[in-house]
Structure formats: structure tokens, C-alpha cells
Simulated scan of single mutants.
Amino acid sequence: MPYPGRIVADKIDFKKTLDAYSAPRGAFRVVEVPDRRYLAIDGHGDPNSSSEYADALAALYPVAYRLKFASKADGRDYVVPPLEGLWWADDMRAFTTARDKTRWHWTMMLMIPDWIGTEMVDATTDLVGHGDPSAQLHEIRIETLSEGTSVQTLHIGPFDDEGAVLERMHDEFIPANGLRMSGTHHEVYFSDVRRVAPHRMRTLLRQPVTRA
């Protein structure tokens, strides 16, 4: 329940209101991505078998949901944004063609609205820590991501089918449009892997770029 006297506005769903979450299927789109703030945790290794990856998500989600409920109580409700990830390897062929997941580095992230301050994040993290927290809880940091001009597309299907899409993005579309890669590969997960079949998974693939 909201505090007495507080008026709760309509719930904001950033997937529907932010243009940077929009991408076509089967085509590439050049977009301008504004700076965004995230709860973030770094890690390394295969997300399918790494306890480090599972622990990272177990730390991020409780904080994100407590922040959402605190904001709702203060009169501003929103849908917790989708999970996002930055992915890279020392040799990017391990990511695009070889798909050697043991060599991957990652940063997993959940976006936080502009009106939520550092003090609220710190207080919420402390509250989560009073329960049975993930071992990585206190590795959470607030990160501002500045991507600017980016190329993105919507991939529908298993994660392991992304390689061919990324090859076309990196080797064909980006150079053909006078661009070059300038930042870290970014994914936004619109589907819940626990509930959606692999062939129906919806993932936004983004690559920051600059003019060549």
C-alpha cells in the first residue's frame, strides 16, 4: 500500500517507453542510446554451468525488486526492467564463431530508474543482506553505461544461434555503413529462460559503434 496521502502514478514499463529497447527482427537498426544507470556485477565463465553467474543473479534480483517496492511506496511504480548483459572475450572469435563460453567475461545488469538515488540503493542492499543473501550481494555496484550510437537487432531463438547474426552485424552491416565497433557487446533478455522454449527466446543484440 502507498503511504497515506501519496498518489501512485501508472506503472511504468521501460520496455515499452524507451526507444533503446526497440529493435527489428531480421534487420539491423542504428539507434542513439542515452546514458542509463544499472545495478551491475562482473564475472567470468560459462553462464550455463558457472555458480558465479547464478550467484550474480541471486544477488541482483532481490535488490532490484526491493527497490521497485520502495519506489512504489513512495508513489512511483514501475516494472523491473529486463536482465541485461555485457559480454566479451580476449579473442572475440570465442564469442562469435568458436562460442567457447569458458573464455567469456560478463557484466550482468538490471537498469534502475533515474529517480532512484545511491542512498536508496545502499539502504536496500543492506536490507537484503539481513536475510540469506547471495555471496555476491556486496559486489553489486551502480554503473552508468554510456553507449551512444549503437547497432541492434532482435534475435528470436536459442542463444547459441546468435553467432551467425553477430557475424553479419560485425563483418557486414557495421563496415558497410561506415561504422566501426567501439564498445562491448550488449544483450537484453526479454524472455525468461525458465518459462520460454529456446526457439521462442527474444534477445536484443546491441553493439556500440563510432564513425569509421
Rank of each mutant, 00 (worst) to 15 (best):
G45A: 08
E139W: 01
T153E: 05
Y61D: 11
P82Y: 07
A58F: 08
W106A: 01
L39N: 05
T210E: 08
E52P: 01
K101P: 00
H105Q: 11
Q207V: 02
S50E: 12
V193H: 14
A9N: 11
H105W: 07
P81W: 00
L205P: 02
M108S: 09
G129T: 13
A64P: 08
H186C: 09
P113Q: 01
A70R: 12
A9Q: 09
V80F: 08
T96E: 01
E52A: 03
S146M: 11
D171L: 06
V8I: 14
G85C: 04
D100H: 09
M201F: 07
V33Y: 04
I140M: 04
D77E: 14
D90Q: 12
V79M: 07
H186D: 01
E143G: 02
F14I: 04
P133G: 06
E143F: 10
Y38I: 02
T118L: 05
T210D: 10
W104I: 02
R194N: 08
G131C: 11
A9E: 15
H138I: 06
M109N: 01
E119D: 15
M120R: 15
Y3A: 12
M120S: 15
H130P: 01
D42P: 02
H44E: 13
T97H: 14
V33R: 03
E84A: 10
K16R: 15
D126R: 15
E172F: 13
R202I: 08
Q207K: 04
D19F: 03
T210H: 10
D10R: 04
L39C: 11
Y61W: 13
R202C: 10
R37Y: 10
E139D: 15
P47H: 06
L83Q: 00
Y53N: 00
Y189K: 03
D42H: 13
F95V: 07
T210Y: 00
W87E: 00
L179R: 09
V79D: 11
G117W: 06
G43T: 00
L83N: 07
E119H: 08
D100G: 08
A123N: 13
A135N: 08
T184M: 03
R141N: 07
A212E: 04
A9T: 09
G117S: 13
E32S: 09
T203S: 02
L60V: 12
P198M: 11
